[in-house]
Design a protein around this nucleic acid. Structure first.
Length: 798
RNA sequence: GCUGAUGUGGCGAAAUUGGUAUACGCACUGCACUCAAAAUGCAGCGGGAAACCAUGUGGGUUCGAGUCCCACCAUCAGCACCA
């Protein structure tokens, strides 16, 4: 019988929809739960690309297997629907971005259904839906009231072209990620979320979750914890002091100058004492014009200016030291001031060389005439530290002394910055606050959601004002007789995605963001799948929100995702990233039409390891299709299926059940498929296939190729979906060979094999091994013989 | 520069974690079926005539290394004047 993918796939998709096959009753606590989640997509105008189904198929396989294993499975899908393309469409056409977004969502939904994913669409959420963002605003409100969402004046990355602020991860090489426009630094009042407050928790909790080690490392680096000390330096002839953060307090005796960030406020404070204040100001203004990248890109050549008329006192040597302003010191890390130890820090060394500042070596080693010495060694020129040989000991002693004198203390710094939580854009969640003349107030709950007003024109104004400024009726309000203004910037895309996994559990609740009992039952997410590119964005933000909600007693676990896996990228057949400009894009619609959804699923799972990037291959997809043809041909031939046992297949069947089950659990889908192929190859050689085996293999294959297996299942006389049939079991004893081929080695090289019974005793093996290799052993001096049971027999000769 | 990952046939990739390297598939070759082709089924398929040689390169540990250790090379990713 011919395998007609089109007919079969349509038929079963219709059946699943009509029977609500995948609908989950979240209140059914009688079965163990399993929550398996995909990172929800941004519904772009291009529709699904072939990369999406890779991860979605993987989670679908797990969802389908877990259902058959008796779990109550939550497997939802939704939309990260706020975003720039919809906004740009609105600017261009003057239409509301919502229409554009909804059209795209329709396309995505059709495509996902066409691929046979077992999502429970009754749980669908969309971040741009006011019923959803009501709760995004509500969570923001809690953060604001708890002081974690703050309105502060800060330097930001400003993109003139886009008319908005960008976060660090939206900037690539000093240009905006989208469009590649220049980015400059500028001071602005900004909404930020105090994610540094959670730095330590986010760091510590990494040890509690089953995530790829590399992703944890990316987050650790991003959080960037460094332990050191804050040390106070007094400014000569004043009562003022400057505090620096250093990770090397042990080198304090070698500090020969201080460097301030050009924006450091102390400069303006002592403007009248600084004799060259104009030069310093000029330097500062020039630095502000540079984007962060330019500032860091010119790494080789240090620039700076001496602050004349002001000196600083080294607290341990009491020598007066010069102060410089230089843009290699950042205002937003540490204290914006550093003590410079040129002998033991390369940057300070370069600076000192350029400005002719003395270099004092305090750790023995290296060659200070050539470069800074950053290694370990004996302390020298260091007063009370002299003679100490380990860094750790020197640091401890120095900190003790500083603490006794009250001029320093142990301190920890994090690299992670405040999360900038506002964009000068229209298509995002409105920030639910009112600005009064003298204070800011969050909206009361009953005014949520604060819905986006409609506009005639969605572009930002010339001055870079947010589009919402145009909605004057909406912006200007009066409350209790006082005039107030609404916030006109909106939340960033990462707002709605920071908690959507909670909403899936109870998507229609209008009393709370999700029922506590349901959250207690369903959280955390058991398996979360998506791309690595979110490592320092979404995956950090959502962890922070979840930890915060946990602290408020609103969710049951600190960490939202107990297990995380990243799918690799599917590259074009030329090994390059798929893109329109390279002309190597594969459209899933075409593939499904020509080969079928099951073929696409099988192929993408068979390509290789889920986590690796791998190139698309046209012959590969054909191969997958051929296997499905072969599979269908074999199992649809009912005349071969019977209740007669066939011992030729017994072992392979039990092996297959075992391997496929464990491979699925470990997300090794490629080897699971190869095992099913091995069984099919074996079955082709047989005249009769026991019904039990045929049905078992069909069930095993169902998670990967759901349509073809439903069809075959129904051909065997079953009237119900295969979805909730029980998962096949295997008998361990039947997977074991009673006779095995044992390799015989001489000096570790295989010279032959013998057939032995399983667990044969050493003497028997030795005898047949010697017999097998008589020729090679003749006249040789046997030094040693090694027998590893059922693995190998090795004879060492000289 | 720092951090992390990867490197196996013509190609996509396996290898129970130290025990017969190249499973499974693609491509290719041959045979069967066919007037023929396609499709399908079956068989072969790292190199070498062989001894042997092959898992990026060079060392090491071990009876035995794709797997462990050291050094290096290449590719990819993240961070990047973070004090």
């Amino acid at each position: 019988m011919e395998y007609n993918h089109n007919e079969i796939e349509k038929k079963w998709q219709k059946y699943w929809k009509e029977n609500e096959t995948f609908k989950t009753d979240v209140w059914d606590f009688s079965k163990p739960k399993y929550y398996v989640l995909d990172m929800f997509p941004y519904p772009s105008g291009q529709g699904l690309h072939v990369g999406h189904p890779e991860g979605y198929t993987a989670t679908d396989i797990i969802a389908r297997m877990k259902r058959m294993q008796g779990y109550n499975v939550l497997h939802p899908m939704g939309w990260d629907a706020f975003g720039l393309p919809a906004e740009q469409y609105a600017i261009k056409t003057g239409n509301h971005p919502n229409g554009f977004t909804e059209r795209n969502i329709k396309t995505f939904t059709r495509q996902l259904n066409m691929l046979g994913f077992s999502y429970d669409w009754s749980k669908e959420v969309s971040t741009s839906d006011p019923k959803y963002y009501k709760w995004t605003q509500w969570i923001f409100k809690q953060l604001f009231e708890d002081g974690l969402a703050k309105y502060v004046d800060m330097p930001v990355n400003w993109c003139e072209e886009l008319g908005t602020v960008l976060s660090n991860d939206e900037i690539i090489n000093g240009k905006s990620e989208r469009g590649g426009y220049p980015v400059v630094r500028k001071n602005l009042k900004q909404w930020v979320i105090d994610i540094p407050k959670y730095a330590e928790r986010l760091l510590e909790n990494l040890d509690k979750i089953d995530w790829p080690e590399s992703t944890k490392e990316i987050q650790r680096n991003w959080i960037g914890k460094s332990v050191g000390a804050n040390v106070d330096f007094s400014i000569a002839d004043t009562d003022d002091k400057l505090t620096v953060f250093t990770t090397r307090p042990d080198t304090l005796f070698g500090a020969t100058f201080m460097v301030l960030s050009p924006e450091h406020p102390i400069i303006e404070k002592y403007a009248d004492r600084i004799t060259n204040i104009e030069d310093v100001r000029k330097y500062r203004d020039a630095a502000a014009l540079k984007s962060e990248l330019e500032r860091t890109d010119l790494a080789k050549e240090k620039t700076g200016v001496r602050i004349e008329g002001l000196e600083i006192i080294n607290p341990v040597t009491n020598s007066p030291l010069p102060i410089y302003a230089a843009d290699y010191v950042m205002m937003n890390y540490g204290t914006g001031a550093i003590m410079a130890v040129p002998a033991h820090d390369q940057r300070d060394y370069d600076f000192a060389k350029k400005f002719n500042i003395p270099i004092i070596q305090v750790i023995d080693g290296g060659d200070i005439s050539k470069e800074a010495y950053t290694g370990d060694g004996k302390m020298i020129n260091s007063g009370f530290l002299n003679g100490i040989t380990t860094k750790k000991e020197a640091i401890e002693k120095m900190i003790n002394v500083l603490e006794e004198k009250g001029i320093g203390k142990k301190s920890i710094n994090y690299r992670i910055r405040d999360w900038i939580f506002a964009r000068q854009r229209y298509w995002g969640e409105p920030v639910p606050v009112l600005h009064f003349d003298d204070h800011i107030e969050s909206l009361p709950d009953n005014e949520l959601p604060l819905v986006l007003p409609e506009l005639d024109n969605y572009s930002p104004s010339k001055k870079g004002e947010a589009p919402l400024e145009r909605a004057t009726n909406w912006v200007n309000v009066e409350k209790n007789g006082k005039k107030a203004k609404r916030e006109t910037s909106t939340m960033p895309g990462s707002a709605g995605s920071s908690w959507y996994f909670l909403r899936y559990i109870d998507p229609n609740n209008d009393k709370v963001f999700a029922d506590k009992k349901l959250l207690d039952h369903w959280m955390p997410v058991d398996l979360y799948l998506g791309g690595v590119e979110h490592a320092t964005g979404h995956l950090l933000y959502s962890r922070m929100w979840n930890n915060y909600l946990f602290d408020k007693g609103l969710v049951p676990t600190e960490e939202p995702f107990s297990k995380l896996v990243h799918q690799g990228m599917i590259l074009g057949s030329n090994g390059e990233k798929m893109s329109k400009s390279r002309g190597n894009v594969i459209n899933p619609d075409d593939i499904v039409k020509n080969y079928g959804a099951d073929s696409l699923r099988v192929y993408e799972m068979f390509m290789g390891s889920l986590e690796d990037s791998k190139p698309w291959s046209d012959t590969g997809i054909e191969g997958a299709r051929k296997f499905l043809d072969r599979f269908y041909r074999l199992f649809s031939d009912i005349s071969k299926i019977s209740d007669t046992p066939n011992f030729n297949l017994e072992k392979e069947y039990h092996k297959t059940v075992k391997k496929v089950t464990t491979d699925y659990e470990n997300l090794n889908f490629n080897t699971a498929i190869s095992q099913i192929m091995i069984f099919v190859n074996a079955a082709y050689k047989e005249k009769n296939i026991p019904r039990e085996y045929a049905e078992g293999i069909i069930k095993l294959f169902n998670p990967i190729a759901p349509h073809i297996t439903e069809e075959l299942w129904s051909m065997y006389g079953h009237t119900d979906t295969i979805t909730y049939e029980s998962w096949p079991t295997f008998d361990e004893s039947k997977t074991i060979d009673e006779e095995i081929e044992l390799p015989i080695q001489i000096n570790g090289k295989v010279k032959g094999t013998i057939v032995i019974s399983l667990d044969a005793d050493e003497q028997t093996v030795k005898d047949s091994a010697h017999k097998e290799l008589t020729n090679l052993l003749e006249g040789k001096n046997i030094i040693k013989e090694i027998y590893v049971k059922n693995k190998i027999y090795n004879i060492v000769i000289r």
